[in-house]
């Protein structure tokens, strides 16, 4: 492994993104979208019961976006898998708080993933009242301006 900023864990997520695709038997879905360039992330959830509590039994994401979005999707969905609903909302909040200290162009891709997860969780909540409630879409607030790679 080369001694560089890009660590092995990050490269593994690039080589084989975790939880990529669409679940065949999802029961909730949410979308995070960048209105400026059409990039988006779709998160599908299979909410199941564990000890009488709803948990994320399975999760997938699909992205129209850059490699940063894919890596963020791979990491966040891996973290979210198996969490209860309240813990999953906490994961979204924590991610958004961390992004508050990150330059907007770096934060936008991860924000898109976090908002897709929030949208999927909110869709799940809305479907308790209306099972046909459509998948919710949230738009990012950060600007994803292509940056110089510094090469």
């Amino acid at each position: 492994m080369a001694d560089t900023d890009m660590n092995a864990q990050l490269i593994e997520h690039m080589m084989e993104p975790k939880n990529y695709g669409i679940l065949e038997d999802f029961n909730s879905q949410g979308v995070g979208k960048n209105p400026d360039n059409g990039e988006k992330v779709v998160i599908s959830l299979k909410i199941t019961e564990s000890n009488g509590e709803p948990v994320i039994g399975d999760i997938r994401f699909q992205a129209i976006g850059c490699m940063t979005t894919v890596v963020a999707g791979s990491i966040i969905t891996e973290e979210a898998k198996g969490l209860g609903i309240a813990r999953a909302y906490e994961l979204v909040d924590t991610t958004m708080r961390i992004l508050g200290g990150v330059p907007p162009q770096d934060a936008a891709c991860t924000e898109m993933v976090a908002l897709a997860l929030q949208a999927a969780l909110d869709t799940h909540e809305a479907r308790k009242e209306d099972p046909d409630y459509p998948a919710i879409t949230y738009q990012i607030t950060q600007s994803c301006t292509p940056k110089e790679e510094g090469i």
């Binding site: 890009m6 690039m14 510094g150 090469i151």
Partner: peptide
């Protein structure tokens, strides 16, 4: 193996990261 080196090519860290992406 994630060695991120091409045979007979020595790149800087930044160039290696940029090439990887």
């Amino acid at each position: 193996g994630m060695q991120r080196k091409l045979p007979s090519v020595l790149l800087s860290e930044e160039a290696t990261d940029a090439l990887t992406i």
